[in-house]
C-alpha cells in the first residue's frame, strides 16, 4: 500500500503555526488600538451611565407607541421581502456557481464537452462566482446608500439592499450545498436517460432543499437586525426613527424604539426556529 501511505507529520509544523498565530493576534491588538482603561475607566462609564439614566422611562404615549409599531412592521416587512428577493437572486446564480452542474463530475463522464463548449461553461462558472462575490463583498448598508440615491428614501431601497447583499451570500452557500449532494442518485437518474434538467429537479434539488431552507431562515434572522439599521441611511423602518430620535435628543422615545427592536428580533428568531423545526 505504498501509494496510499500517509507520511507522519513533522513536529515543527504545529509550533510554527502557533507562533505565527500569536504574532498575528499581537499585531491586530496593536493595530486596533485596544484601550481597556479607556473603556472601563471612570470617565467613560460615567458618561454611559448618565445617558442610560436619561433613557428612562420609555415614552409610552399613544403617539410614541404608534410610531414604534409602524416602524417595527416596516422593518419586519423589509427583512421578509428582502430575504425572499435574496433567494430569488441567489438561487439562479448558485446554479451557475456549481461546477458539478456545468462541466465536471458524474454528469459529464460519458460525454465530455468539447474544448470550446467546456471553455464557455468554465467562463459561465467564473462569471457566476464573480457576480456573487461582488454582491456579497458590498455590505448591506453600502447597497442601501446606493439604492437610496437611485430610488429615493423609504423602505424600498432597504429591500433592494438586503436582496442584493444576502443574494450574494445565499448564492455562495447554495452553490456549496449543490456541489456537495450525494452523486449516487444522480448517476442512477442519468442511467434512465434523464436530461440534466430532470436530474437537477429530481436528484439535486430534493437533496439540497433542507439546507437551502435552513440557510435562508438563518439569513432572515440576520436580516431583521440589518433591516433595523438600514434606516440610518434613509432606507425606512425603525432605524430611520432611531436616527431621528438620537439627533433630536428624544431619549424616552429612543428607549421605546429600542424595545421595539428587541421585540421584533425575538419574534423573528422564534418564527425562524419554528419554521426550521417544521420544514427541515
Amino acid at each position: 500500500m505504498a501509494r496510499g501511505a500517509v507520511a507522519r507529520p513533522g513536529r515543527a509544523a504545529p509550533l510554527l503555526v502557533g507562533v505565527g498565530f500569536a504574532a498575528l493576534l499581537a499585531w491586530s491588538w496593536h493595530g486596533t488600538a485596544v484601550d481597556l482603561p479607556g473603556l472601563f475607566g471612570g470617565e467613560g462609564l460615567r458618561q454611559v451611565a448618565t445617558y442610560v439614566v436619561k433613557l428612562f422611562p420609555p415614552d409610552l404615549s399613544a403617539g410614541a407607541w404608534r410610531d414604534a409599531a409602524t416602524g417595527a412592521v416596516e422593518t419586519f416587512a423589509i427583512s421578509l421581502i428582502g430575504s425572499l428577493l435574496a433567494v430569488c437572486v441567489g438561487l439562479p446564480l448558485s446554479l451557475l456557481a456549481t461546477r458539478t452542474l456545468l462541466y465536471r463530475g458524474i454528469l459529464f463522464e460519458a460525454r465530455r464537452p468539447g474544448p470550446g463548449a467546456r471553455a464557455v461553461r468554465v467562463a459561465l462558472y467564473a462569471a457566476g462566482k464573480a457576480v456573487l462575490n461582488l454582491l456579497r463583498t458590498i455590505p448591506e448598508i453600502v447597497w442601501a446608500l446606493i439604492f437610496v440615491f437611485m430610488v429615493g428614501l423609504g423602505p424600498f431601497p432597504g429591500v433592494l439592499a438586503l436582496g442584493f447583499h444576502t443574494g450574494g451570500v445565499l448564492g455562495k452557500l447554495f452553490g456549496e450545498v449543490l456541489e456537495d449532494v450525494d452523486p449516487a442518485p444522480l448517476e442512477a437518474l442519468q442511467a434512465t436517460g434523464a436530461s440534466r434538467f430532470a436530474i437537477l429537479v429530481y436528484g439535486v434539488l430534493p437533496q439540497a432543499l433542507p439546507q437551502f431552507v435552513s440557510y435562508a431562515l438563518y439569513r432572515w434572522e440576520v436580516n431583521i437586525r440589518a433591516a433595523a439599521m438600514m434606516g440610518f441611511v434613509g432606507a425606512g423602518g425603525l432605524g430611520q426613527r432611531i436616527h431621528i430620535a438620537i439627533s433630536l435628543f428624544q431619549e424616552h422615545q429612543l428607549m421605546t424604539l429600542i424595545l421595539a427592536i428587541y421585540a421584533i428580533v425575538t419574534l423573528v428568531d422564534a418564527l425562524s426556529a419554528f419554521l426550521r423545526a417544521r420544514l427541515v
Partner: peptide, 21 residues
C-alpha cells in the same frame, strides 16, 4: 446517448434512490 440509455435499466448495489422524495 440519452435515447440509448432509456433502453438500459440499472439496479445498483446501494439503491441510489432520492431518499427525501
Amino acid at each position: 446517448l440519452r435515447r440509448t440509455r432509456t433502453r438500459i435499466g440499472t439496479i445498483y448495489q446501494q439503491q441510489n434512490l432520492v431518499g427525501r422524495l
